[in-house]
Design a protein around this nucleic acid. Structure first.
Lengths: 216, 216
DNA sequence: TCCGGAATAAAACATACGTCTGTTTAACAT
DNA sequence: ATGTTAAACAGACGTATGTTTTATTCCGGA
């Protein structure tokens, strides 16, 4: 009846009715998460009701629970959906094999900026709703973010060794850089005057200036 | 620039019972806001109940409504309490009269960084709960933030004119700078390794490097 | 044609919430 | 003592919520 005491698995391992084809269930899940995310973005997680989600997806309220195990679970799935592609890109593409540190940093930074910009609403939502995540899942999310910082730290540290960059503390610089990626998601209300391209260029330029000595 | 920043009563707090000593009421209000803010920080606004606030303040649930007009009102008051001092400092102190652009920027930046650092929990809370603000009050808050950006834009623009700074777009630089002030509030979970002083120095250094040419 | 699993609609359920009301207590001037 | 007034209190009200359940409909395949 009320199994609140049973440990809540993070969404990935969430146990569901498990009937029929897992394929169709996953598809339905994705549909729910996508629609629900729009609502979370527009109204906030707490202010979005399961009835809202039912209406938005066109899936009956009771039927929703055949695909997700709880409202909280939808949020976890949303974090997964929009957080993973970034790190995935950095690994899939051969960023790590670029020899020139400056070019390597520019390539990684540019791609991250573009992705961040295009997913601005989702990122803003994540910043706002992080608190709602169950502790176990929160840990996973922070770990992923921390990995991203480590990724940039390595690039920067190598550039410093090769005298291509000039920063006193690569770990700090990486933290600042990753944080700066969120400038637009968190402050777009004050940056409307810039076109997408202008903004990306300006941001890239500003971030790099703090890392690459520009006196040459 | 900041014309009506010292508006006191007619903020967003709605009209209250308006009893006898407004003095005691304000004191009580401050007490409520302070305690409630701690709860909002710890559990989030939506997850904090008026009963929680009653328990934390020791003020009876029903009696709370003699001092605040709604739960939402408490949040508005919290924003006011922690948002105003920053702008106030910049105006009170004679930052605007400092002649040397570099010294002027350093002074303002340092103070803002210290204040941001010390109010990190409140700032994190504000980033997260902005959505809950009633539209009318949200507008006021964004205006204040925008004013802060304008403040730094003017400093930067003057430094550019005097060839002391090197930035392509002062408005963008100011936006980035103000955003960077929130690095610690938003990312402290990944920056625990730094002492307060080390962190402040590093941040100041990094922010300035993007504005002041360091080839000298 | 009929069966069985899925979807739907509607309601129920238990709880939690913000807010308000009616009453009591305490302080204090008269 | 007494009367007045503001503060404190417990409890209730109505609504909204996440979740579950029940009764009914739909539809493809035997």
């Amino acid at each position: 009846m009320n199994d609140q005491l049973s440990s809540k698995e993070p969404s990935a391992a969430q146990t569901l009715p498990e009937t029929g084809s897992q394929e169709a269930v996953n598809k339905r899940q994705a549909q729910i998460v996508k629609k629900a995310s729009r609502l979370f973005i527009k109204k906030g997680y707490a202010q979005t009701t399961m009835r809202d989600i039912s209406k938005a997806t066109g899936i009956n309220l009771g039927n929703l629970y055949n695909y997700i195990s709880s409202k909280e679970d939808i949020l976890c799935l949303a974090f997964e959906t929009y957080h993973d592609p970034a790190i995935a890109w950095l690994e899939r593409k051969g960023v790590l094999t670029i020899e020139d540190p400056k070019e390597q940093l520019q390539t990684a930074l540019h791609q991250m900026l573009v992705m961040t910009h295009d997913a601005m609403n989702d990122i803003l939502m994540m910043y706002r709703e992080t608190r709602v995540l169950p502790p176990k899942f929160l840990k996973i999310v922070l770990k992923k973010e921390s990995d991203l910082v480590d990724f940039f730290e390595k690039i920067i540290a190598r550039g410093v060794e090769k005298k291509a960059f000039h920063v006193r503390d690569p770990y700090f610089a990486a933290n600042m850089l990753v944080f700066q990626l969120s400038l637009y998601p968190l402050r777009s209300w004050n940056l409307k005057r810039y076109s997408r391209e202008d903004f990306l260029t300006l941001t890239e330029e500003t971030i790099l200036k703090a890392i690459i000595p520009d006196c040459a």
